[in-house]
Design a protein around this nucleic acid. Structure first.
Lengths: 211, 211
DNA sequence: GTCTATATTTCGATAGAC
DNA sequence: GTCTATCGAAATATAGAC
């Protein structure tokens, strides 16, 4: 098989550089309005060369989706394990705030190009190595929010917490652009904390002890 | 000048029917991946006929944006007037929850096609009758969230509340699809209420009286 | 791995008849 | 108001040389 790319140590591979460029262009102009010609132009080589690294435009988007997947799969595992213990939600949500704020471009890509990702799903594209344990993040999120072991009101709260974090991310671009990231993160953690406080602050609800 | 369209009383005009069809297609396939041919096909007439009612594809999107504008301008006026009185936020946010839940397709269009709307803005298109008082909703939202008369932490809370509502809207499509709208609305109002409670519940913060 | 050149398709938009 | 026919542009993707 062809030898995997071996760039200078520490240097990102051409493939990763393409993804970085594509991520930037997709976020500024939108996925659909970004042409392969633009990506190639900024990379410094021709459009056809892109097809050596990716077999289609959708494949570039899919690769970026995989970046998010790798980013979130660990946190999702922890969430799945702790979802029935609301008192454990706090630290997990705090970590989610950090992860989201630290990966703004990747998250922004997904929130601002939802239609494009959905078309990817329906086009028969699939996550390369997904099995029952590691399928798409959206499917896992759906399963989490429909878990009958968690009261509906709590699940709505969880969804709201996620939306609150994402809105903070969204406005961090223009509205709160001069607010230091750690300060914004502190406020967000406070907001999310209050959002789930009615849940997490009642360790004894059904009787007085759990299990 | 040409007589404005006079459809059967109670029947929506052809123009409005086109907008309804376009809204549905844009939401299912995305704006960029929806062609004028599809819209015309579902309308039952040819593609060229669309150009009698709209001068471009972007004009259709702009008209849909105007629908949201008319929907939100009133609520924004009230928010602008009350933003310095946090104790008035509660009822306004409750109304925002209702408005958003009652106009899901229109809101979804905007959240899922942000890039398309942004391109509209940069293409020189402008809101037909906008003046200093009634400009674009996003500009008004930005001004609201950057208002120096409101403490930063409060503004972040406001942004989070908006995000929480929108996330509830987002998940109402698939995850919470079997939850009655009024029940979901109740939970959302509760969540938003807790989110701004630390603000609205302190009418006396600076001394003991305001003004 | 990257190039030039081109195939193929689709779309937005216009012209002009009715 | 709607039609047929068509234009022109731009995009994705491929073929084959280097």
């Amino acid at each position: 098989m062809p030898r995997p790319p071996a760039p200078a140590p520490g240097e990102p591979s051409t493939r990763d550089q393409i993804l970085d460029v594509a991520l930037d262009l997709f976020n500024t102009n939108g996925y659909d309005k970004t042409s392969l010609r633009e990506i190639a132009e900024r990379m410094g080589f021709s459009k056809a060369a892109l097809y050596y690294h990716f077999k289609s435009k959708g494949d570039i988007l899919l690769a970026l989706h995989m970046r998010l997947h790798e980013l979130g799969v660990e946190e999702f595992d922890d969430f799945d394990a702790a979802v029935v213990d609301p008192e454990k939600w706090g630290p997990l949500l705090d970590r989610a705030v950090d992860t989201i704020l630290e990966n703004r471009p990747l998250i922004t890509l997904h929130t601002r190009n939802q239609a494009a990702f959905e078309a990817l799903h329906e086009s028969g594209h699939e996550i390369p190595d997904h099995d029952e344990q590691h399928d798409d993040l959206q499917a896992r999120l759906t399963r989490l929010l429909t878990n009958p072991d968690v009261p509906l009101e709590h699940r709505v709260r969880l969804a709201c917490a996620l939306g609150a974090i994402l809105s903070g991310l969204f406005f961090s671009g223009e509205v709160f652009s001069d607010v230091p990231a750690d300060e914004l993160g502190r406020y967000l953690r406070g907001a999310v904390g209050d959002l789930v406080a009615p849940i997490t602050a009642r360790p004894a609800k059904r009787r007085a002890a759990r299990g």
